[in-house]
Design a protein around this nucleic acid. Structure first.
Length: 414
RNA sequence: GUGGGCGUAGCUCAGCUGGUAGAGCACUCGGUUGUGGUCCGAGAUGUCGCGGGUUCGAGCCCCGUCGUUCACCCCA
């Protein structure tokens, strides 16, 4: 019985692991360029932090990895990033300075779901939060930031969908009418229970009969208060001014129930059922709910795993970077010199590999070929006494004689 | 949690109506003296996911189980 990775986890091995870290770096770079600062947070938190905010969502009620630690505390592997980030902001008083607080984070999340394409029990996402401003410009900038994060990867076949969930008064008014509407529908038991938890979820049902039954349902967008409607209108204007295309999707429902006001989701068109590559929204009451000031915030999560699937679907996976130089020592005496040379060249920023084992030159060359190094060089006694090596460009087969001392200069021009 | 597909060498898979396993790729070595990519030769590799059952005999049939995959629910 061989050991296997736990069910439903994604693992990134070479060369895919390069894509993985590249995606995370691109996301972080774009977010950082907006002035957001990195926070490194724990992957587990007090269970209550999560149950407080989402008892009516499957994410919290059914899909959490929860366990008791040795001190009898109930601990949960984070199923999402926002509340942990807010907890840290509140705990360390980051919101006591100038607002908004702008932070981002990158890491793994855990949900005990049945795995399928694009859905894993441990998945990675990069998130950002801006807390303490209600300016619609912040909403627009947040959305634009997510958009350019995806575009920085070269992705293009996705759509930005938006809606506004309004303020609590808007939602309460809508809910009354929606519940009345749903009560008249002929629904199965499971669906009815779902609707009881959160009637909005029926808008998101994939079954055709439910979809058509819901087509006449009262829409939250029609219930927005004047302030909410105006705020949302401004967000749309600003996005249009930024040249960012979006679709208003009044049926959109987010997985976490704390969202209010502007809510958005990026949907990729070449993925399977799990097509959301990122999304987020505004949360008015969340800071207060977990013990902070009564201020609004907005944030998003960008799915790293799904972005990678999207890159593959669009054929945009970047070519993996390879070594610059593959050094082949010939004879025991040259090993020391080769290791020394390799260290020097690496210090100047090159990726340098060395052939190990006293194989034939032929197999060492084959190894160089497989490593996909751009150049190779054999270093034997004659090279050492001559003080120069033949640097061979693997693609063309052409070689150039370079003195040992000029090697790093040679590569500086390549 | 529910439903369907699939589980055979490192990878992708073949294996006809049951008769005790194969291909391609990859890997290792070689095709004589210090230069790879093509070509040729040789070689290593599997408790056919696991456990039961049917049968003279099961990779092929049945049951269970685990894993995997896709979809539902849900979501990054």
């Amino acid at each position: 019985m061989k050991f296997q990775a736990p069910k439903g986890v994604s693992e990134y091995l070479p060369p895919k692991s390069q894509t993985f870290s590249w995606v995370r770096n691109q996301f972080a770079r774009v977010i950082g360029s907006n002035g957001y600062e990195l926070v490194e947070l724990p992957v587990f938190e007090d269970t209550e932090l999560f149950t407080r905010i989402g008892a009516s969502t499957d994410v919290v009620s059914k899909e959490m990895y929860t366990f008791e630690d040795r001190g009898g505390r109930s601990i949960t592997l984070r199923p999402e990033g926002t509340v942990g980030a807010l907890r840290a902001v509140i705990e360390h008083g980051l919101d006591r300075g100038s607002l908004p607080v702008k932070v981002y984070y990158s890491g793994a999340y855990f949900r005990a779901e049945r795995p399928q394409a694009g859905r894993y029990r441990q998945f990675y996402s990069v998130g950002a939060e801006a807390i303490g401003s209600e300016d619609p410009a912040l909403d627009a900038e947040m959305i634009a930031m997510a958009d350019s994060a995806f575009r920085s990867l070269g992705l293009s076949n996705f759509t930005l969908q938006m809606t506004s969930l309004g303020d609590s008064a808007s939602r309460a008014a809508h809910r009354v009418d929606l519940v009345k509407f749903i009560a008249k529908l002929d629904l199965d038991e499971a669906t009815r229970e779902r609707a009881a938890l959160n009637p909005l979820r029926l808008f998101d049902d994939k079954r055709e009969e439910i979809r058509s039954a819901m087509s006449d349902a009262p829409r939250l967008l029609d219930y927005l208060s004047k302030e909410s409607a105006e705020h949302f209108a401004q967000v749309q204007e600003l996005l249009t001014a930024l040249g960012i295309k979006f679709e208003i999707n009044p049926r959109m429902v987010r997985g976490l129930d704390y969202y209010t006001g502007t809510t958005f989701e990026f949907v990729h068109h070449q993925l399977g059922a799990q097509s959301g590559i990122g999304g987020g929204g505004r949360y008015d009451g969340l800071m207060k709910e977990i013990g902070g000031q009564d201020i609004s915030g907005i944030g998003f999560g960008l799915g790293v795993d799904r972005a990678i699937l999207a890159l593959e679907a669009e054929g945009k996976v970047p070519a993996p970077t390879t070594s610059d130089l593959f050094l082949i020592p010939l004879g025991v005496e040259s090993k020391a010199r080769v290791l020394q040379l390799a260290a020097e060249l690496r210090a100047s920023g090159l990726i340098v590999e060395v052939a190990y084992g006293d194989k034939s030159l032929k197999s060492a060359m084959k190894q160089a070929d497989k490593s996909a190094a751009r150049y190779s060089a054999v270093v034997g006694e004659s090279e050492l006494s001559a003080g120069s090596v033949e640097v061979k460009e693997m693609a063309s087969g052409a070689s150039t004689s370079v003195t040992l001392s000029a090697l790093s200069k040679f590569f500086a021009s390549k």
